[in-house]
Nucleic acid binder design. Sequence first.
DNA 1: CGTTCATTTGAGCCGACTCAAAATGGGTGG
DNA 2: CCACCCATTTTGAGTCGGCTCAAATGAACG
Lengths: 244, 244
Amino acid sequence: MNTRFHAKRAGTPACVSCSECTLRALCLPGHLPLAEALALERAVERGRPLSAGSALVHCGAPMDALLVVRSGSAKSHSVTLEGVEQVHGFVLPGEAVGLEGFAAGVYSCDVTALEPLEYCRMPMRGLEALIEQLPGLRREILRLLGGALDESQRLRGQLSLCDARGRVARFLADMSRRLARRGLSPTEFRLSMSRRDIARHLGLTLETVSRSFGVLKREGWLRVRARNVTLLRPEALAVIGGRA
Amino acid sequence: MNTRFHAKRAGTPACVSCSECTLRALCLPGHLPLAEALALERAVERGRPLSAGSALVHCGAPMDALLVVRSGSAKSHSVTLEGVEQVHGFVLPGEAVGLEGFAAGVYSCDVTALEPLEYCRMPMRGLEALIEQLPGLRREILRLLGGALDESQRLRGQLSLCDARGRVARFLADMSRRLARRGLSPTEFRLSMSRRDIARHLGLTLETVSRSFGVLKREGWLRVRARNVTLLRPEALAVIGGRA
DNA sequence: CGTTCATTTGAGCCGACTCAAAATGGGTGG
DNA sequence: CCACCCATTTTGAGTCGGCTCAAATGAACG
């Protein structure tokens, strides 16, 4: 799998403190007062780098740490009783992984690297103690969870209200926005996930996703060549799409 | 609007402590050690009863309290930029309201009573202090949020994987399960929401929902007369449905 | 350079949507 | 208690978008 796109980010040296991390503003410490950020930093471990296709967390495994992706990207997914994969979402650098685990202390989905990936771990034991001591961290964790919930609900609404073309358009607009927050180009990027992953995230078939890319291209919204995308009018992209 | 169904529950006298509340086991205190439950109880206020159609919380209003429905039911919904309503979910007695508000300290959806409704309030100020002091409550709040997130993601998957008949079937199975937890009949109940609300929750049109009820009835899964439903094989209902 | 997997493109079908009309039922006032 | 009225729900007919199955093209990697 091609990693050139995220390589700029991944090139961080092995040992980096949170305060020096390029992701600081996006990660937990970015919203904390300095004293709290330093305390949190002492509880953070560095996970060993993973290759594409390996798992950050397994469904059913005890949630022993809160993970944040440092470089690379991942998909959060699960398998229904009938054996069909559903993709809950994609994780970009600075984003937390497996928050649903708070429900039962056990991860309820798999998270799999889509390309070579690095991450940080905050072991739950230490984290719980810190949550008790640091009001800012407490608020931040709740903010994180509330945000994930809100986003999930909102996305669900969009899925029912949009036709295929609109879903793909919004998906791309969302990626663009999130990449921009990380200082990467919002208009030109490489998707790390397959059409099949996108399809299973958007509730479509991969053929329909592919066709939608084609339609958007023909309509002049973007250029596509395989996984490389160039958005031509990213602002407008977020508001197109069938029924809503 | 007919309230007979929930009236059994609603008949609680005006002043009830958490420890005496029939919902105790379903509500926050049910999962807390006794000492913590008592501390929490002192922070709980009783909201004044609402009539059908009035709002528990308004989208955009500051989240000044955590609300739990005590009797009756509500729908959590929002309106897209295009003016289309999307129904995020339905709230039953013992369930918390507006958890997405933790994201920004502001409610991001409306919650509207579907029938006469009573609720409890835990003002945020006091709650935050308690969260600091009570480890059990801390864990419980995280559990609540994680559970809501997990459920939302799982539901989204089901919506894309199921055909209309399956979505309605799972919706009914879910209601049945939740009613059973409250000690009510899992097989015979009255839906407090309209077909339109159900449709907007499941990403369908109200005509399709109505037709799906018809199909399920004809297939012998249930009896329906208007909003009154009798499930004939509730266990099996959860696993039927088109693509998954 | 060849193999393998991902993606694109095509043809035909089915289910959910739209528009429209009839029927049911809950609530109100005589 | 009954009759009426309104909103909700049901039912019908026709269309269209996304799915399925199938084949061709393109990209990545050894």
